[in-house]
Nucleic acid binder design. Structure first.
Length: 571
DNA sequence: GCCGTTTTCGGCCCGACTGTTTTCAGTCG
């Protein structure tokens, strides 16, 4: 059984227990265990054999025993019995906004509702408003929220879309009279790979007045809620956004609070509590009732004896207990080792791409069009690659050393694990990227074997978008990443963090694990047009979330070092 | 159910907003 399946079961257990009315801390334990398992980056079976399951944060004796039962039998008696007690359809009910475990339990016990359809029928028939403590408005809003839930079932944005939408809101907020600072917060500031809604935090002399201007603007489609300090709205694009406004002296604690993650904030507040401090978005309250306001985030962390923690690390994945790394930044990237031109499926010519790379601040660019078997993407024949090589040489002369161009290819890994070009062609390349675009539906062990065979090929430098996932569209292959990382580390092959916002592959968790196992990484744009070098910042944010330092990322290295690494194979 | 630079038992983050009530529970982030 896969980690993700185990985590999903614990998540369901947490919710079912909450509906059942179990003490909240027990449900929290299952929730935390699920999060820890998701962040593990390695197979539960390995952890069980090596350090033991209880080495996982939030996993004690009881949950460890349940994990073992799941791993051994593929099923969990405790969970099965829970499902007989509480209708599984209620899990969909509590996924609706403003419906939590308490309400779901009441709908179930008082109206016999066991799933979302039945809840919608009950609301439509006016049976909600008849319940004690519920009214007409509750019922109307419930119907709206159910409709919204059905519309947005897929509902998360990719990073680039979220960035664009957030910048628009931010610009608008900054123009509201009386607003001093405004910043992006929430999961977008933490650079999560997909974004549910936008969080903006601002400071103003008179927060309530500024909020009024915000919610009355024609740029807002609908106001979901609004008060003295926060408003939740829907933008004309259908995207949900929240704006918090605080006095300037509280801006630091407000930014820290609204950035999250929730798990990180809970840990930080627990830490504060042990020092006799109560932390909220307004600052610290001491035991004598006095207030310590924080205008900057640094002050928030310093007050409890911590260094400022970069937002990308705020996921309760060790940032309070482990030494913080010096994270990679996008300015560290000197080279881009994966891109395409009109020779295969790119939209711009080689020269246009080179110009764009220069404008993006790059010093080294690897030209890596597809290989011959990828017909749909205009893969190059051996002869075409040779012709392209002549063009690369001409362009290199023309560029007069302003940009160093390496010539390689993104070479298909064929079904038997061999590469799409023979060794004598690969030997002529400056850089060889191996990747897989076809036959991704084969079982995980077969796909793993195929990649492991490919990694034995003496010419490979980089394994591109290793899992093949497409966010929101396709799950990655179920590979044995541990085996792939070990092989790549041994061969000094770099694993790619593909920076396309739809790929981000490796993800943060896998990137962190790869580095732990001694792998090199490459953050590449995979640009198919001249505007896509800007994607490098998305790849960088994945690396940052994976605790990655520049030292292990080959395209941050000085030319000499990079060429030495490439030259180990290509002479 | 987990966990320990005050604890192996007794704790477990904190406040804003809503809707329905007259003081609060539920939900959310």
């Amino acid at each position: 059984m896969k980690n993700e399946e185990v985590a999903a079961i614990f998540e369901s257990i947490a919710q079912l227990l909450e509906i059942k009315g179990e003490v909240i801390y027990k449900t929290l334990s299952y929730h935390r265990a699920a999060e820890s398992i998701r962040a593990l980056g390695r197979d539960l079976n390995d952890v069980r054999q090596e350090e033991g399951l209880q080495s996982i944060p939030g996993v004690g004796a009881a949950i460890a025993a349940k994990i073992e039962e799941l791993l051994d039998t593929g099923s969990l008696d405790f969970y099965n019995r829970l499902l007989e007690e509480v209708p599984a359809g209620l899990l969909d009910v509590i996924a609706v906004r403003d419906v939590g475990a308490k309400s779901a339990a009441r709908f179930w016990k008082e109206l016999g509702v066991t799933n979302l359809d039945e809840l919608e029928q009950a609301a439509g028939a006016g049976r909600i408003r008849a319940m004690p403590g519920m009214g007409e408005r509750t019922e109307t809003r419930l119907l709206e929220n159910i409709a919204e839930h059905r519309r947005l079932a897929t509902g998360r944005m990719l990073l680039d879309e979220a960035d664009r939408a957030a910048q628009e809101v931010l610009a608008f907020v900054r123009e509201i009279p009386g607003v001093e600072h405004a910043d992006i917060a929430g999961s977008l500031r933490r650079r999560r790979e997909t974004i549910g809604d936008l969080d903006i935090v601002a400071s103003a002399e008179d927060p309530a007045a500024a909020l009024q201007v915000f919610i009355q603007s024609p740029k807002i489609l609908k106001v979901l809620s609004s008060g003295e300090s926060k408003a939740s709205v829907i933008l004309p694009t259908g995207i949900r956004a929240q704006l918090w406004i605080y006095p300037i002296r509280e801006f630091g604690s407000a930014l820290q609070y609204t950035t999250g993650s929730q798990a990180h904030n809970v840990r930080l507040r627990e830490l504060a509590q042990k020092q006799g401090l109560s932390l909220s978005e307004h600052g610290y309250k001491r035991e004598d009732g006095s207030i310590l306001s924080c205008a900057s985030e640094e002050e928030v962390y310093r007050a409890v004896g911590l260094d400022w923690i970069p937002p990308e690390l705020r996921e309760d994945r060790g940032e309070f207990t482990q030494k913080l790394p010096v994270l990679i930044s996008v300015e560290d990237l000197r080279a881009d080792l994966h891109m395409h031109t009109t020779w295969s499926d790119g939209r711009n010519s080689l020269e246009e791409m080179a110009d764009a790379a220069l404008k993006a601040g790059l010093r080294v660019l690897a030209v890596t069009d597809h290989s011959r078997s990828l017909g749909v993407a205009g893969g190059l024949s051996i002869e075409q690659w040779g012709a392209q090589h002549a063009e690369v040489e001409r362009l290199q002369v023309k560029l007069q050393g302003r940009l160093r161009i390496l010539h390689g290819a993104e070479v298909e890994i064929l079904p038997d694990g061999s590469l799409d070009f023979p060794g004598d062609v690969l030997a002529r390349m400056d850089v060889v990227i191996a990747s897989l675009h076809a036959g991704m539906h084969q079982p995980g062990d077969a796909a793993t074997a195929r990649i492991l065979t490919a990694l034995e090929n003496p010419w490979i430098d980089i394994l591109a978008h290793p899992t093949g996932r497409l966010l929101g569209r396709r799950e990655g292959m179920q590979l044995d990443m541990e085996a792939i990382f070990r092989s790549a580390a041994q061969q000094r092959i770099a694993l790619e963090i593909n920076a396309h916002p739809e790929r981000l592959d490796l993800n943060d968790i896998l990137a962190r694990r790869a580095v732990e196992l001694g792998c090199l990484l490459a953050v590449n744009s995979d640009a198919h047009s001249q505007d896509q070098f800007s994607h490098l910042r998305y790849g960088t944010s994945v690396a940052r979330r994976g605790w990655v330092t520049p030292a292990v990322v080959v395209n941050t290295w000085p030319d000499a070092e990079l060429l030495t690494w490439l030259g180990r194979k290509h002479g």
